[in-house]
């Protein structure tokens, strides 16, 4: 039930963002600072999700060679940087995670 409420909330917010400038026919002036801030949203939000996932996989900080997700994520970042290919990055990261999980165990 809560899940459905969350999804509907996400949908309402998304639709409101898309609809409001179209319906409010007066020119909607978006402040220049918001315009400029928008391009930093993806790197900031995504990296704020990525780094805790890699550095705190079990909920506590783990910067060691025993942290398979950290190593696999670092390899994936390298592949992403060199190839800019999403599927290749996911493939390399998952392969690394599976191999490391066997080695570290």
């Amino acid at each position: 039930m809560t899940l459905w409420l969350i999804i509907i909330g996400m949908g309402v917010v998304t639709y409101a963002i898309r609809l409001s400038p179209i319906v409010l026919l007066e020119r909607v002036d978006i402040p220049p600072v918001v315009r400029r801030a928008l391009r930093f949203v993806p790197p900031a939000v995504l990296s704020a999700i990525i780094l805790p996932g890699l550095l705190r996989p079990g909920g506590t900080l783990d910067i060691s060679l025993g942290n398979a997700r950290l190593l696999a994520g670092a390899l994936a970042a390298f592949v992403a940087w060199r190839t800019k290919n999403v599927l290749l990055t996911i493939g390399a990261g998952m392969a690394a995670l599976w191999i490391l999980q066997i080695l570290i165990r």
Binding site: G73, A76, A77, A80, N85, T89, G93, L97, Q101
Partner: peptide, 20 residues
């Protein structure tokens, strides 16, 4: 056991890194 939740983190890495 395939730990597919990790593909989410990897997808984000694939999107963010080339944009930096």
């Amino acid at each position: 056991s395939w730990a597919l939740d990790f593909t989410l983190t990897l997808t984000f890495i694939a999107l963010v890194v080339p944009a930096l």
